[in-house]
Design a protein around this nucleic acid. Structure first.
Lengths: 149, 149
DNA sequence: ACATATTATATCGCGTGCGATATAGTATTA
DNA sequence: TAATACTATATCGCACGCGATATAATATGT
């Protein structure tokens, strides 16, 4: 049974279920997020903005573990939808001060529905969710604060 | 401390670490997969083909939890790179029989290096990997064999 | 047999995600 | 203060990943 190629069998990868589950969850969000006129990535960006009230692009990149080449067009779309505004920081003109519009702030209450709906879609126990959460953050945090390079 | 909006704080989502960790892992694979001239998605597709030897597009879609609109162009790229060949099935002309070329078969041995390199990149214990694996597959399998609709 | 349904694959348009690179503004340092 | 380094944001091109839809081949039902 044991063979040379076991290590590159799909069923022996940890990366694949991570990838597949992530795709699946994003797909499940879609119908609920459609009602807010948000994509999944736009939704998690709005989460950060709802909490911070004011932010810049760098903060968003770090919070979402994304690069500027993903976040720049994302912010453009949120602006086009009328949820955010971008201004240059008076103190440091490189900085992009991002603020929520009235519509952007109002969206927060509508969004409260989303986690309720999603809870019914993903069938894992509270304990499993906690364990999952802890291990995933171990992977993320390990990478986030890379000291070398 | 407890507020109305806790449920839509980024730190309280299970979807986000899943999404971020998946992105990160894919990013970590890149330098190793570059040596095989494969992207991450092409890599997991090749894993299936190395095992099955012969397959069709539908089988790949199911194995990778992807839709034909992702897999069709993927296969075109693998064909352009000379790793696979596509022919119509004589018995059922709708079927696309996918076979590995010589180069595609040879790539398998080069790929053995990849999991070794990746093991050094992701710092979780064997137990954590096992738990993660089990929970993620619970999410995936729950979705895969959806009976209604 | 023939209209209808089903199946496998393909196409279209959009929004990511990324590495690489460019640009503009600020800080540093000689 | 003038060259240099650094920082925040933006641009480019490529490869997904998706819902919606199209097309061609096979299966089904009357």
């Amino acid at each position: 049974m044991s063979n040379k190629y076991e290590s590159i069998q799909l069923k022996n990868q940890i990366c694949f279920p991570l990838y597949a589950a992530s795709n699946m969850i994003t797909r499940k969000y879609k119908p609920f997020l459609d009602e807010l006129d948000l994509t999944y990535t736009q939704y998690i960006a709005m989460m950060v903005l709802w909490e911070k009230v004011q932010a810049n692009e760098k903060l968003l990149c770090e919070a979402l573990c994304l690069k500027s080449n993903t976040v720049t067009p994302l912010l453009k779309k949120l602006q086009d939808k009328g949820y955010i505004e971008k201004k240059k920081d008076k103190g440091d003109e490189r900085n992009l001060v991002i603020t929520l519009t009235k519509a952007g702030k109002e969206l927060r209450d509508k969004a409260l529905r989303v986690p309720e709906c999603m809870a019914k879609e993903v069938h894992i126990t509270a304990e499993e969710a906690e364990v999952l959460y802890r291990i995933l953050y171990k992977i993320i945090d390990d990478e986030r604060m890379i000291p070398y390079d």
